[in-house]
Design a binder for these strands. Structure first.
Length: 422
DNA sequence: ATCCGGACAT
DNA sequence: ATGTCCGGAT
């Protein structure tokens, strides 16, 4: 990837911006004031910008990958994934040629797996339709899966330095405060903010300017306690002037979590264990996982103080019905909790053996919705497939269990109530 | 435990 | 307009 200094640190802006008169900042009406705002913001950015690997490049591919990873994901979480991903898939052609599962494997643990699938699909589309070059116009970019208006603007401005506006969580917060209508400071629409972002954008230095806007939101114009005294553009801020910056906050939708009880079963046959692939559209789409049963209803019916595990024969019957597989339930070996979107899932994990004498060759066809594929895998190959985070956790516990109890045989597998693993 | 964060479908 | 998808940081 091209290296170097994409945003040369020119001398700090020594000019003192003129004191601003009172009144709402309207970027459309005052070009001089807008230019001063831009200079202040950019000068601040040159002093305070954090260093990230995706800021060390202007390679549109690397910037695209980073922006997709950064969707709904914080910078600290993204960094190691970004490095690994770029090392393995250094360019569009390499990514397009890769197996989907390997792409997913490199995304494992980052979440929102549709992003990885879209990225891969888009890479193939770029090779097939655009000669392997990342498009540099907004319409074509947004025709690619996983690229919306923000990501298109980010690629256009960061990589190509085109004057394309961006609006994401950080810059949205900045502009919401900066441009708030004093009468209705919380009624600002995204449509208005997009228009404003476009009007505020300088025709040159769009890359630095856009990143400065985001960085200000990330470091100074914080949701909870905005550090307005440190803000280089507080003179231009409609809410700072009125002291109502704390009244304009991102209203977090208070969708309270739903408790879910699940059973995960590691079903063994000879040396292999049964894995299922999660279907399109749901959680962990395209990722492999251990067979899981939602037992929330049963637990609720049985009463809250009772053992959260249904009787072994009920579980065995349920697996026979959904997977067409005769099993004998073994011991409980792991309990953990996992929070995902608005669900708080408690997972109880059990060993199990296929109870039929005959070998069931190609995995059962899962008839239950939610699963698309099944496979019997040797423990060692669990490393090679993309697993959901809970799935990876179960796999790790399973490998430990098998290593510490090497002599375990089906005869010794006896169902027992879950121990409290807290 | 709560907070944080774009694309897409509906 | 609203809901869905994820995991790590705090």
């Amino acid at each position: 990837m091209p290296r170097g200094k994409p945003y040369p640190m020119c001398r700090a802006d020594k000019r003192t911006a003129s004191r601003t008169h009172a009144g709402a900042f309207d970027p459309a009406s005052d070009g001089r004031r807008r230019a001063a705002f831009q200079r202040r913001l950019i000068a601040w950015f040159r002093r305070h910008a954090r260093s990230f690997p995706w800021r060390e490049t202007r390679d549109p591919y690397a910037i695209w990958v980073s922006e997709v990873m950064l969707q709904q994901t914080q910078t600290a979480a993204v960094e190691p994934f970004f490095r690994r991903f770029l090392a393995r898939f250094p360019d569009v052609a390499t990514l397009a040629a890769a197996h989907p599962d390997e792409v997913l494997r490199h995304w494992e643990g980052l979440g929102y797996y549709r992003r990885a699938r879209s990225l891969h699909a888009a890479a193939r589309q770029i090779v097939a339709l655009h000669g392997g070059r990342i498009p540099d116009d907004p319409e074509t970019l947004q025709s690619l899966p996983g690229i919306g208006r923000y990501t298109a603007g980010a690629i256009l401005s960061f990589a190509f330095d085109r004057p394309a506006p961006i609006l994401e969580a950080n810059s949205r917060r900045v502009l919401r405060r900066l441009l708030a209508d004093p009468e209705r400071p919380n009624d600002t629409t995204d449509s208005f903010l997009w228009q404003s972002a476009e009007r505020l954008l300088p025709s040159r230095q769009a890359a630095v300017y856009n990143q400065a806007l985001m960085e200000l939101g990330g470091l100074v114009c914080l949701a909870r306690h905005p550090r307005c005294r440190d803000c280089p553009v507080h003179d231009y801020c409609n809410t700072y002037r009125l002291g109502i910056q704390n009244e304009v906050a991102g209203i977090s939708s208070t969708t309270r979590p739903t408790a879910v009880q699940e059973l995960a079963i590691a079903i063994r046959q000879r040396r292999a264990v049964l894995l299922l692939r999660r279907a399109e559209g749901g959680r962990w789409a395209g990722m492999w996982d251990f067979p899981r049963l939602d037992i929330t209803q049963e637990v609720a019916r049985a009463g809250r103080r009772s053992n959260p595990t249904p009787p072994a024969d009920r579980v065995e019957e349920s697996v026979r019905r959904s997977l067409g597989l005769p099993i004998r339930l073994g011991p409980h070996f792991l309990r953990f909790r996992h929070a995902v979107t608005r669900f708080r899932i408690t997972v109880d994990c059990f060993l199990a053996e296929v109870s039929s004498a005959e070998t069931i060759p190609a995995g059962p066809k899962p008839t239950e919705p939610g699963w698309s594929e099944a496979a019997w895998l040797e423990p060692s190959s669990l490393e090679d497939i993309p697993l959901s985070s809970p799935g990876r956790r179960i796999a790790a516990a399973l490998l430990t269990h098998w290593q510490t109890t090497p002599g375990e045989t089906p005869e010794r597998l006896v169902a027992s109530p879950p121990r409290r693993t807290r």
